[in-house]
Design a protein around this nucleic acid. Structure first.
Lengths: 108, 108
DNA sequence: GACACTCATAACTATATGGTTATGGGAAAA
DNA sequence: TTTTCCCATAACCATATAGTTATGAGTGTC
C-alpha cells in the first residue's frame, strides 16, 4: 500500500495545484487543511479533493486531531518515480553501449 | 529549449499511452511513427498527437527521412524530474535533521 | 443544549483531454 | 504523371478533471 505504480504518481503530480500542495508539505512539514487552503489560490473543498487524491496516490498521510486534519508528505512514495527515471536512463545507456560495441567492431 | 519545467514533463508522462511510447523509445531506440503505431493500441493520428506532445515537452526528438518520421527519446529531458524529486527529498531530510536537533536539545 | 468551527462530500459546471474518422500534403513507386 | 504510402492536421465526440457553491458530519466552545 505504501508502494504505488508510477501511473498514479505521475497523474497525481501532473496537476500544478496538487504538486504545489505536496511541495509545501515537503518544505514546511505537517499542516492542517485550513493552513494549506490559505495560500493555495483555490477553495477549501478543492484543497480537500486534491489532498484526497494525493493520499490515494500514497504521497501524503493524514492524521485527525479534534476537528482538524493534519496532512504530511510521505516522502518514500517518490521512490517509484526515482526507479522509473533510473530505468529509462539505464535503457538509454544500454543502447549507447551497444552502439559503442558496434562501432568498435566496425573499426576493426 | 532542451530544458523544460517539471510541469510539462509531469503532464506529458501522466498519460499511460504517452508514457508507453516514451518507454518504447527509451528501450528500443529510434522508431518510425508506423512502427510505434503497431503495438500501441490506438490509431495512428492518436500516436502522432502524443508524439507531438512528447516533443513539445522536450522528451523526444524527430528526424524526417523521406516520407517517414523517426522519433527518438531525449533522455536528458528527464533531468528536471530527477532534480525535482531530489529537491523534495532534501527538504524532507532537512526537516528531519531539524527534528533530530530539537530532540537532542530536549534530551539535554 | 445551542452555537461555532473544521473539514469532507454532494451536486453541478466548464473546460481539458484522449480517442475516433476524414482529409490533405509531400515523398516514393509505378 | 498517376498512384501509393506515411504522417500530420482538422473536425468532432465522449469522458475526465478541476473548479465552484451548498450542505452535512463531527468536534470543540459558550
Amino acid at each position: 500500500m505504501t508502494d504505488t505504480s508510477p501511473d498514479l504518481l505521475f497523474r497525481a503530480l501532473a496537476d500544478p495545484s496538487r504538486r504545489a500542495l505536496f511541495e509545501r508539505l515537503c518544505m514546511d512539514g505537517e499542516q492542517t487543511v485550513g493552513a494549506l487552503t490559505a495560500g493555495a489560490g483555490i477553495s477549501q473543498p478543492a484543497v480537500s479533493k486534491h489532498l484526497g487524491l494525493l493520499k490515494q496516490a500514497g504521497l501524503v498521510l493524514d492524521r485527525h486531531e479534534g476537528r482538524q486534519t493534519h496532512y504530511r508528505a510521505q516522502q518514500r512514495a517518490l521512490a517509484p518515480l526515482v526507479d522509473w527515471t533510473g530505468r529509462m536512463n539505464r535503457f538509454w545507456e544500454a543502447r549507447f553501449d551497444d552502439l559503442e560495441d558496434l562501432l568498435k567492431r566496425m573499426d576493426q
